[in-house]
Design a protein around this nucleic acid. Structure first.
Lengths: 133, 133
DNA sequence: ATAATTGCAAATTTTTTGCAGGTTC
DNA sequence: GAACCTGCAAAAAATTTGCAATTAT
């Protein structure tokens, strides 16, 4: 993903330098929280305010550009909008890896009397590297 | 579940009236956030302070009495500690239903190179009732 | 040209902290 | 009676708001 301007326009948002910067930061990090975006984005745009980040995070969620990833015991992170997937969160190093919801897995999410809209699956544990330590 | 005093003591926490009240509130609601606990608990114990709730929510999580359920776009809710399970969250009426992670479903949680510790699965959609509306 | 967006500062809301007095075991 | 817990008030942190100036289309 690289054309944030198109991404924004396709979703009925004006392409401001602030928005493309925020998206670049999110895309680059994969999963990132508001404070981290702020630190990140300030390097190129020292005047970009935290209020602008808050406002845009809300707006870009509403317009399906980004997704909130609520975290256990810490601030929510954000990622670029993509199909439902599983987050593997390492409790040792903090790495968040995405993994696909395969067809077989999808069936498992078919639950009687419930019309699924979207799935938020966070698995906490140890990544490959940290298992060896 | 009814014996909150034993539950607390088994997990190395003193059984105060504040703690049993908070647990009763959580247990009764199923899933509930801090403000709701406060409103709830004040009825019986008008002097019970919000600070006490915050302190105890942290403590009871650390001591495995309760679990945080981070929510999309709203404050975290809390539930009594139990085995991993799936939350079915109705986007229309807000109801949160628990459903078991069956043996077949467990397959979704088996992922190469990841040592699973605990699973946080929130499915957003429409409950049976709200599908008909 | 118009409507939307930004940055700032201030307001609000949420969460944490310190400590004197009270409670549990 | 020792250690822990509570409630209060105050502090700190997080988020939202209003508005004049600027920017995107």
């Amino acid at each position: 993903m690289t054309d944030y301007i198109t991404l924004l326009k396709e979703n009925d948002l004006k392409a401001t330098i602030q928005r493309t910067s925020i998206l670049k930061s999110i895309d680059h990090a994969g999963h990132i929280n508001i404070d981290e975006i702020y630190e990140d984005v300030k390097e190129q745009h020292p005047t970009l305010s935290l209020a602008t980040i808050y406002k845009n995070i809300i707006l870009m969620q509403q317009n399906n550009v980004i997704i909130e990833v609520p975290m256990n015991g810490e601030k929510s992170k954000y990622e670029l909008k993509k199909d439902d997937h599983i987050h593997l969160i390492c409790q040792s190093c903090g790495e968040i890896r995405d993994t696909e919801i395969t067809k077989e897995r999808e069936q498992i999410l078919t639950i009687e009397n419930f019309q699924l809209n979207n799935a938020q699956i966070n698995l906490y544990g140890l990544c490959h590297k940290c298992q060896k330590i």
